[in-house]
């Protein structure tokens, strides 16, 4: 455990308080059901004559705020791609180590998480396939060429500013890599298939 972690945990334990004073505790023998005395419903729930609990005006305001922010998305995505390229160069030039593979996975995971929000769903799709490859490959001999193809595809999608889900070239590239990835994963020893996210699901999200 790092010094930083130990320091924080020590501070945490020093600030000990008791749960029971702030909650009703119902003992059921082998377990307890605990209900906080003060809830967020007390603090933030308001009566309304609107049907349903969703405040559409609030959602629309948030969507508008996101739209205003979207002018930044291309440069943000570009930053992520630069990080990806650096991680891949480190991984391919300095040899495969657990550290270099972990760093590569970290940025690929970031991209699969943020690319769709930034307007690049095909980059999410390719990054998702690449994440599956990194997780499931034999990490002593990872498929460098296949990984390289995915990295290049993500770079190309962003370089060509292929936003949205209608760009035919980005779609073809993404579909092709998806098939190759499925074939690659299928030839590995059996794995839990719940990790493999269907392409349609990636697109839909």
């Amino acid at each position: 455990m790092s010094d930083k972690r130990q320091e924080i945990l020590a501070k945490l334990n020093a600030s000990s308080t008791t749960t029971r004073a702030r909650a009703s505790v119902e003992s059921r023998g082998s377990y307890e059901i605990i209900r906080p005395r003060i809830t967020l419903k007390d603090k933030a729930a308001i009566y309304t004559d609107r049907p349903g609990m969703m405040n559409n005006a609030a959602i629309e305001r948030a969507e508008k705020a996101l739209e205003e922010l979207s002018v930044e998305f291309f440069s943000w995505m570009d930053e992520e791609v630069i990080k990806l390229q650096r991680a891949f160069e480190d991984f391919s030039k300095n040899g495969v180590t657990n550290d270099s593979l972990t760093k590569l996975f970290k940025i690929v995971h970031e991209i699969r998480g943020c690319a769709s929000t930034f307007g690049f769903p095909f980059a999410t799709s390719v990054a998702n396939g690449l994440a599956q490859i990194i997780v499931h490959c034999d990490q002593k001999v990872p498929p460098i060429q296949l990984i390289s193809s995915h990295v290049s595809a993500i770079r190309a999608i962003v370089r060509e500013d292929a936003r949205g889900s209608t760009d035919a070239t980005a779609k073809a590239l993404s579909d092709q890599l998806h098939l190759i990835t499925l074939n690659y994963l299928a030839q590995l020893p059996p794995i839990s298939t719940d990790n493999i996210k269907p392409l349609a699901e990636v697109r839909a999200s």
């Binding site: 933030a44 308001i46 009566y47 609107r50 349903g52 609990m53 405040n55």
Partner: peptide
């Protein structure tokens, strides 16, 4: 019916 006042 209830809604949430996020400002709180």
């Amino acid at each position: 019916m209830y809604s949430v006042d996020c400002s709180r």
